[in-house]
Design a protein around this nucleic acid. Structure first.
Lengths: 231, 231
DNA sequence: GTATGCAACCCTGTATACAAGACCCGCCGA
DNA sequence: TCGGCGGGTCTTGTATACAGGGTTGCATAC
């Protein structure tokens, strides 16, 4: 309604964020303002603004008088990320459980997602299925974030999302993992729908634990394996 | 060594941040770029950059095509802030406790702070004592943040600090509160120094609980009382 | 052959000019 | 008298010019 034209700064920000998330801009890649100007067609002002925003989100490192680089991935950064998510997301899912208990519409929304997850298991394993699963998982994450009532919690978790997505995209998708991950999501959904906040939180912690293990396993076979582990 | 000259953007950012923290720029105050240019002597580019950074930190609200305002304080924002701190800071103090147990130098540092807190009780109640106590409490908070080993946790807690400080400055200092607060800090210190992570976390939660109660009590007598409670 | 100093290039930090949207106030019509 | 419309002004969004620091690579001296 308000903005039929998102600002160029926002466009550049969104594009760079996506490219970093997808791994098209590799960790450590240098991002000169001039190069970005050529690539995006915007001028230096919006490019600078986008870079600063990305730096605030931790997706690029900004060295004064020297420029920007895509932030690196290290074993430590992965550990920190998942440890932090393990602190935040159970709290969010607890709040979401309470919210779903109080709001029938929200409850139905989560129920629909539970069914969608269950439906995933009927499809034969394939990259397409992995894709649609990850999309669904993403929508679920967003639903939980939105249902959390604490503004700081929402913002902070939302800011972590691109980091997680990047890790998933840097490691190669593991079709095996999808089966298990669907089950973990179902467990979270079931507990949430039953109003069992503790159960939902515990199931989520379980999921995060498995996820980080998978990422470490898969990262070991990726080109980024030896990128930097100086954390 | 590297920067004998902090960039103007950084200077403007630091100045605005401090003024917002101190309440000199009241919640809701409009921050036109041109006005800031006049006040700071910098040009619009660094001013804009500072505003964007402050917006990312939640200290100003940025409405596209319309400008920036100092972010408002509502009952809900206070609740959200302390609820979030209650989630994060116990984790940080746990990590700090472990760190102090492993690093004698760090342990001594915290021991010195404990003694400094104890020394505060010998002084007669006065604004000067309140001031020096809050300074000390601030240094303690920073020490805990630094000792935490998780990067995300550190950054996020550090980002919340200005919000808390602003609330303290918007409500009037309560000399009564200092006595109690010193005791709470001593409890956290003692547990931390004893290697009792759970105890330190619990003491900190207790402190946060009392703090938010005090703030609500004091805010009720301040000019901001009716500012907006639409949270 | 290696180390050191210098110079040219490139980059970011800053200032400012230009474009375009948003708001306010006054006018006109019902 | 009230509501809608239009122009003017102010504000932000964007582009670009200018200045200063950093880096790199080469030349020269040891």
């Amino acid at each position: 309604m308000t903005d039929l034209a998102p600002s160029k700064a926002e466009q550049v920000h969104a594009r760079l964020k996506e490219e970093i998330e997808l791994g098209e801009l590799a960790p450590g890649a240098s991002l000169s303002e001039l190069w970005l100007v050529e690539r995006t067609g915007a001028s230096r002002t919006p490019v600078r603004e986008a870079l600063r925003r990305l730096a605030a989100e931790g997706l690029v490192d900004l060295v004064p008088r020297q420029g920007a680089r895509v932030s690196r991935v290290s074993a430590r950064s992965v550990r920190d990320l998942f440890e932090f998510r393990t602190l935040l997301e159970p709290a969010a899912v607890r709040q979401a459980t309470e919210a779903a208990g109080a709001d029938p519409g929200l409850h139905r929304e989560f129920a629909a997602m539970r069914d969608a997850f269950a439906g995933t298991l009927d499809q034969a394993p394939s990259t397409a299925r992995s894709r649609s699963f990850y999309e669904l998982a993403d929508r679920f994450d967003w639903a939980v974030i939105r249902a959390a009532r604490n503004e700081h919690l929402r913002r902070t978790i939302a800011e972590l999302r691109p980091h997680t997505a990047r890790l998933r995209n840097l490691s190669h998708l593991d079709p095996q993992r999808v089966e298990v991950s669907v089950g973990e999501h179902l467990a979270v959904c079931d507990a949430l729908l039953a109003g069992d906040a503790d159960g939902a939180a515990a199931a989520l912690v379980e999921h995060l634990q498995r996820s980080v293990e998978t990422i470490f396993r898969n990262l070991a076979g990726s080109p980024w394996e030896d990128l930097d582990l100086l954390g």
